[in-house]
């Protein structure tokens, strides 16, 4: 019993010591996500028993780049949720700094745009910090391994054309298609211009 408690305590202290500064790289196992959705219900990665993985997008209401990608995030969910890779959108911004990124504003935007994916509020910013997300939009594709652990397979931009005119490469689609086909993801990480996540003042 004491050993168990010690172990739990040890893990907790490790999480506290390193967890907050963790930044996921391709190949890392991600934390369980359990956040408040815009319909006032909690959504957890554990809720999706049939999911083969997730397309996790850190996004928000205010950033012009995030807005440009809204329809494409929706399209990703429509294309891949049925194939086992649903979208989880997460807004990590401090609502005090950006009132347009508040929980109530998220509800309004999701209603206006008819989002079909969960739009989650990372109020404590713990998920974004643990992931190492820096900007919106910022995407992570994760795949469940045989033990049910979610492993990062792609980090970066959705595609290489923020305006959405004619991307040369749709990185997220390419990654998920590869995973579905049991192939290696060709481009595992990309960079893109975005809006820095506004962290709460400590």
């Amino acid at each position: 019993m004491i050993r168990k408690i010690t172990t739990v305590f040890f893990i907790l202290s490790m999480v506290l010591a390193f967890g907050l500064k963790a930044q996921y790289s391709v190949g890392d196992e991600i934390m369980k996500i359990n956040l408040l959705n815009i319909n006032d219900e909690m959504v957890s990665t554990d809720d999706f028993e049939d999911a083969k993985g997730f397309i996790i997008v850190f996004t928000c209401n205010h950033c012009p780049y995030a807005v440009m990608y809204e329809d494409r995030i929706q399209a990703l969910n429509e294309k891949y949720a049925s194939k086992g890779y649903p979208v989880l959108a997460i807004n990590p911004n401090d609502a005090e700094a950006y009132p347009s990124d508040s929980y109530s504003a998220m509800k309004v935007r999701a209603e206006e745009k008819g989002f079909t994916f969960p739009y989650l509020h990372d109020e404590s910013q713990l998920v974004a910090k643990t992931f190492g997300a820096k900007a919106t939009p910022h995407t992570y594709v994760a795949q469940k391994d045989k033990k049910g652990r979610l492993i990062v397979k792609y980090i970066g931009a959705i595609d290489d054309d923020p305006r959405g005119g004619a991307p040369d490469t749709k990185f997220v689609e390419e990654a998920v298609d590869s995973l579905i086909q049991g192939k290696k993801v060709p481009t595992e990480s990309t960079k893109a211009v975005g809006c820095s996540i506004k962290w709460k003042k400590a």
Binding site: D160, D161, D168, V193, G194, C195
Partner: peptide, 21 residues
């Protein structure tokens, strides 16, 4: 013309994720 060519972000600094400021 910065939107399409993402290599320039690394060229400014490999540490840069691409967000501003």
């Amino acid at each position: 013309n910065y939107l399409r060519n993402m290599e320039w972000i690394d060229r400014v600094s490999p540490e840069w994720g691409g967000s501003i400021p």
